[in-house]
């Protein structure tokens, strides 16, 4: 079947510009993941290196001071686990 258009041409913004900043957040890239980071809270020192080095910009500090990824976006690359100075993050096969 032929692919459908996303919208009528009359509804496109001028020059097909995109007017909603950061709208890519609608796209949940979490389903790209095969491995999932698991945090060992006993080992974690809450340094936040995982947040700094996350290419999905999806790790943030929670109220309890621990840094955790938003799994809606985490692609499971494993950089956070690799860079954790205390080896508090393990990449494990995600059960879906």
């Amino acid at each position: 079947m032929a692919k459908k258009s996303l919208c009528a041409w009359q509804d496109l913004a001028l020059g097909a510009a995109i007017l909603a900043p950061g709208s890519a957040a609608k796209l949940k890239t979490g389903d790209w993941r095969t491995l999932i980071p698991r945090l060992d809270e006993d080992k974690c020192i809450k340094c936040g290196m995982c947040e700094l080095y996350c290419p999905e910009f999806c790790i943030s500090e929670g109220k309890d001071g621990f840094f955790r990824p938003n799994f809606a976006y985490c692609k499971g690359c494993g950089i956070c686990a690799n860079e954790c100075p205390k080896q508090a993050i393990a990449m494990v096969m995600e059960e879906k």
């Binding site: 796209l27 890239t29 700094l52 910009f57």
Partner: peptide, 26 residues
Amino acid sequence: NTPKECMISSGHRACQGCGEILAMGM
């Protein structure tokens, strides 16, 4: 005082573990 607000949103289509988007985010 490392600034935390990234002006590139999550949901971008870079490959997992992309070093470029990470640098650009910084």
